[in-house]
Amino acid sequence: MNHDLEKLISLHDIDVMIDDLKHADIMEQEESMGLSPDHARAELARIREELASGIRKRWLSLYQQLAGHYGNAVVPAVRDRCCGCLTRLPTAMCSDPDRNEEIHTCPTCGRIIYWAD
């Protein structure tokens, strides 16, 4: 898999974790289980910055632009459809065996796509 794509997926997962730990219900639940959500959120933000600094500017700025617009910048392709906008993706893109070796974006919504299978 393309290294920048791997990092963008990890960045997305970290962003989800940070957002989750801002929810009052999640924070309360984690605290009741003896975890430290405030500390974890701060630490995740630090790890995020470290990871982001290793992503090429072109992809990082695209990620940030998409995340700002849609909330989710990276989505999987399932059954040849973009899971962001559900549009069918071009056959040439989906049938390429090395499709995860470069970064593809959905021709319709522009989200960054990866294939999980």
Binding site: S10, D13, M17, H39, R41, I47
Partner: peptide
């Protein structure tokens, strides 16, 4: 990639929820 995500969560804070029990967890688009 999930190993990486769960390890990141662990680095941010241990997920031991009770003596003898841990709960490594995350939400992931994967």
């Amino acid at each position: 990639l999930l190993t990486r995500a769960l390890e990141t969560r662990e680095q941010a804070g241990p997920t031991v929820i009770r003596t003898g029990i841990s709960l490594p967890h995350c939400r992931s688009l994967l």
